[in-house]
């Protein structure tokens, strides 16, 4: 990371001292660079700076899970993570899920079980569910429900989401990797 101190930015009004931050991170296996106001979140960096709009903004307050991505293999909320904090980190988003052109088994299971309706929470649900499999929290439906409760779905697809995860888990899906 390099700081670019004291850049004079001239807007319509008075000049302002801004220290933009340049952040280099890996997104879906590719090295990417973001130069932005350090208050820019990972979510806004992905969507607005890197053109990866698969990750959704549902509340921007850490309360809905729509922006769930993986940072260094753990599921986190991109709306409460600053992009600058991700220097050198590995970020995985729905846009890069699947391998060799094949969808991840969960993506297929979500389609088969109709685990979504409007589809807006779906990227976050799936990224959360991929992590859930790796966490091994799929032993019972109660466990799946509890550990998927950080992802709101207003269309109410929860039972179908559980069915999709249950199926992939029962087929050894915890070995399914990104």
């Amino acid at each position: 990371m390099t700081h670019v101190p004291d850049v004079q930015t001239t807007g319509a009004g008075a000049p302002r001292t801004v220290s933009e931050v340049t952040t280099t991170l890996t997104v879906n296996g590719e090295q990417r660079t973001v130069s932005a106001d350090p208050r820019v979140t990972l979510l806004d960096a992905l969507r607005d700076r890197l053109g990866l709009t698969g990750t959704k903004k549902g509340c921007d307050q850490g309360a809905c899970g729509a922006c769930t991505v993986h940072v260094d293999g753990k599921r986190v909320l991109a709306c409460l993570t600053l992009a600058a904090q991700c220097e050198g980190r590995e970020v995985a988003t729905i846009d890069g899920l699947g391998r060799d052109g094949e969808p991840h088994p969960l993506q297929k299971a979500f389609v088969d079980h109709d685990g979504f309706q409007c589809g807006y929470c779906t990227p976050g649900q799936i990224m959360s569910a991929v992590a859930l499999l790796e966490e091994g929290r799929t032993r019972t439906d109660v466990e799946i429900r509890e550990f998927m409760s950080g992802n709101l779905c207003r269309c109410g697809a929860y039972p179908n989401i559980v069915a999709a995860i249950r199926q992939v888990a029962s087929e050894g899906g915890s070995d399914a990797r990104l």
């Binding site: 899970g65 599921r75 986190v76 909320l77 959360s128 992590a131 859930l132 409760s149 950080g150 992802n151």
Partner: peptide, 9 residues
């Protein structure tokens, strides 16, 4: 106390 995403952060 929180969702897994928040607990990871």
């Amino acid at each position: 106390g929180a969702s897994t995403q928040l607990r990871n952060m």
